[in-house]
Design a protein around this nucleic acid. Sequence first.
DNA 1: CCGGATTTGTTTCCAAATGTTTCCATCGCC
DNA 2: GGCGATGGAAACATTTGGAAACAAATCCGG
Lengths: 256, 256
Amino acid sequence: MSRTPHILIVEDDREIATLVSRFLRNNDFRVRAVPNGREMDVALRDGRFDLIVLDLMLPGEDGLSLCRRLRNDGAIPIIMLTAKAEEIDRILGLEMGADDYLVKPFNPRELLARIRAVLRRAGGVPAPEVGESSLLAFAGWRLDKAVRRLFNPQGERVALTGAELDLLLAFCERPRRVLSRDQLLDLTQGRAAAPFERSIDVLVSRLRQKMERNPREPELIQTIRSGGYMFSPEIQVAPAMQAAPEQPALPASGSR
Amino acid sequence: MSRTPHILIVEDDREIATLVSRFLRNNDFRVRAVPNGREMDVALRDGRFDLIVLDLMLPGEDGLSLCRRLRNDGAIPIIMLTAKAEEIDRILGLEMGADDYLVKPFNPRELLARIRAVLRRAGGVPAPEVGESSLLAFAGWRLDKAVRRLFNPQGERVALTGAELDLLLAFCERPRRVLSRDQLLDLTQGRAAAPFERSIDVLVSRLRQKMERNPREPELIQTIRSGGYMFSPEIQVAPAMQAAPEQPALPASGSR
DNA sequence: CCGGATTTGTTTCCAAATGTTTCCATCGCC
DNA sequence: GGCGATGGAAACATTTGGAAACAAATCCGG
C-alpha cells in the first residue's frame, strides 16, 4: 500500500523528540510527537498509527504501564526507549511486550532501522484491525470485518465496495464523535486531504444511499456542518459469526 | 518450551565466540559454537536449536546466504551480528529475514536481552508457529503441509499446483492481514515484484476458482483494493492427521 | 534428449471501483 | 431576501483488479 507509515513518539525530552521527529520525517514517515501518556491517548483516539516509540521514563503514567495498556487493546507495534542498559533486563523480565527497544543514547539511523524492521515483521499495514471478534453490530446492522461483509437489519447482505467498507469501519472505530474529512481520509487511506478534496463526501453519500432509510434524513451518518461527519449509532461487539445462511447479496439497489 | 533453550553460535572469531558462549551459559542457555557455515549444517543435523546467532562476515559461505538458506527450510529464529552500522541498511534492504541483529562491538548483556526477546516472540505468541503439526485447518478445509495436500470441507482432495499451494501456505501463515502482492511474492518465491507483475493476481484467481463457493464473492481470500489480499478465515492447527480415507484428487473442477 | 502435457507467468481487454469536477440546493448569517 | 460558504449529487475521468488468451517454462515418460 502506498500509505506512508504513521509513527507516534511518546517522549518528554523535547530535544530528543524534535530530533527524532525530524529525522523520521526526512525518511518518509509521518510523525506525531507527544510528551506523556495522556496526550498519547488523545492522539490514538484521533488517528491511526502504525507504530509507537515509547520512552520508558515519563512524567505521569510511566512507559511500562502504557506499554502494557497498549498491548491489551491492540497489536500496535511498540519500540521502547530506555535510558540505561541495566533497565533492559527489567523490561524483559517484566515481559511487557514491546516489539523492540533501544538504549539511549542511540543513533537515529539505528532507530530508523529498527522501526523498519518491526514494521516489516508486523506484516505491513495493521490495516483495519481484524481483532479477535470480527463481528460488529449497530442499529440492527451487522458488519463482519474478516470477510468484509455487511448485513442489514433484515439479515440481507448489502454489497459495499472496498472504500465504502473502509469508511464504515473507520466510523465504527470512532462512533459518536465528530470526524473531520481529514481524519477520515487518514483513517481510511493514511493520507492527508488535498485542498479541495471531496472524495470523503462522495463516499459518505454513496454509503448513505446504501444504508440510510432516507438518505436525505440520515440516521446513521450525520453531517456536521463545517466540522465533518459523525456516526451516531452505538456499536456492539458481537461474539462470533455463526455460519450465515448464505444469502445472495442485494444488488446494491440500482446504484449506477 | 520448558527445556533450557539451545543456542547455536556461528562466528569465526574465536575470542568473541568463547566470550559469548560463556556468558550465555552463565545465563541458563545451552550453547554450541561453530566457526562457519559447513559446521553449522553439521550441528543442525545433530541437534535441535532454538535460535541461531549468525555472524554476517564468515569464511566460506557468508552470513546472508546462510540466513536465506535457513529461512527456506525452517522457522528457526536468527540474530545477525554485523561489524558495521552501515551494513544494517543492506541487511534490511535485502529482507533476508533475520529476526534481529546487533552491531559489533556489542555488550553481551545486550545480546542476552535480544535473544530472550526473540525467543519470547517466537515461542510465546499463539502465532502460526506451525513447526510441529503439519496439519492446518480453516473454515472446514484441511491442509496438510507435510504432503502438500488440500481437502475441502467434504473431505475430498482438491488438487493444487505447487505455486497455488505455496500461496495458500503464505496466506495461512499470516491470516487476517492485508498482504501486498509484493509481500506475497516475497513469501512464496523470495523475489520482489516487477513493475507490472500480475502473477499473484492470476494465482489468487486460480485459487479462488478451486476453493471459493462463488469466486465472484470470495469468502476466503478478500481483495483489498490498492492494498493486496487478505486471508479471512481463522486458522486452527490441528493435532494430527488421522489417516485420511484416500480419495482421488478432484480434477479441480473443469478449470481450464 | 525428445515431444507432449502441465504449470506458471505475461499480456490484453474490460468492468468495476474510486476519485475529480462541476453544478446546484441549502444553510447560516447579515 | 441576498450572499457566501458548504455539502449533495451527477457526470466524468482515472485507476485497479478479474478473466481470458497466450506464451514460456517445467515436468515427465520414454
